[in-house]
Design a protein around this nucleic acid. Structure first.
Lengths: 148, 148
DNA sequence: CGTCAATGTAACTATACCGGTTACATTTAC
DNA sequence: GTAAATGTAACCGGTATAGTTACATTGACG
């Protein structure tokens, strides 16, 4: 992916976390993200399918977190909104060349290695961590899973 | 990035590694990658700027590795051809909202964490590893840096 | 020194993807 | 029943990318 869907989703969930159970509608979220409510609803839809939020339709409806912020990881969000891989394979290598014939499998392996590393990283950051950093603008108490 | 430039670069370097110092021209590489020579030359150009390969212009010219395959990591290649980050920030959050005002810094931090994880992973895979996997189609002897 | 082969690069095109927007059917509270 | 909200389709415009053509530049070699 090279889209902003993940960024929009994190922003949205941060708002929901601060709303503390009070459902927010797509119009209000769109105002903070500074985009169109439909863009938000598209993200909300993916997050609801992943059981990260619960959405109520109809008048007075809106979205709220399905569980506490410290129980939602960025990996949950990543999986909900993310389609493709970090880099694209090239479409059709020449199969008459020994390298062309087998490079695809090697590149798939590299993709998997990258994706595994990304997922390991995102699994260690929770929505609560994001909210904590929001409020202070600085990193708060050192978070449990952090490396480096 | 979500382009195939990285894939093309790895494919290209695998060919050069197997050529064992014999320079290959963009036409030959393009044939194996199954694309246009200009696309290859664009990749070659970036790789030469990063000192991963040496390119000779003029008649009988072409590209060759600048050092041994086991001294070239996928991180070298990634850095040479890669522009952007794994995901995009959303352009302009609403600054009158406290979340909108500070979410950008948090997302930048997440980007950095992801990029660091990706780079750590790529730094542990060499071009030699890629070539070994090419030749057998299977993973060869367990490589030094591997995790999981 | 001239020729030829190769790179480096600009320019253009076609395609794909994405965000933004409008529109509307569906759902739900009151 | 009405109003308010979601879910989703359809479309538009901008942007990035791969592919292509073209050409100036470079360099080997007779």
């Amino acid at each position: 992916m090279a889209s902003s869907r993940f960024a929009v989703a994190v922003h949205t969930l941060a708002l929901l976390a601060r709303a503390e159970g009070q459902p927010l509608d797509s119009r209000a979220i769109a105002h903070s993200v500074n985009t169109n409510p439909v863009v938000i609803r598209r993200a909300l839809c993916a997050l609801a399918r992943a059981r990260v939020i619960r959405v109520r339709r109809g008048a007075g409806g809106g979205a709220a977190l399905a569980r506490a912020p410290h129980e939602i990881t960025l990996l949950d969000i990543y999986r909900a909104v993310n389609g493709g891989a970090a880099f694209a394979l090239h479409p059709a290598p020449q199969r008459r060349c020994p390298v062309g014939r087998s490079i695809h499998a090697v590149l798939c392996w590299v993709q998997d290695e990258i994706d595994a590393a990304v997922q390991r990283t995102l699994a260690e950051i929770t929505l609560q961590d994001v909210v904590d950093r929001l409020q202070t603008g600085r990193r708060p108490t050192p978070t449990r899973g952090r490396k480096r």
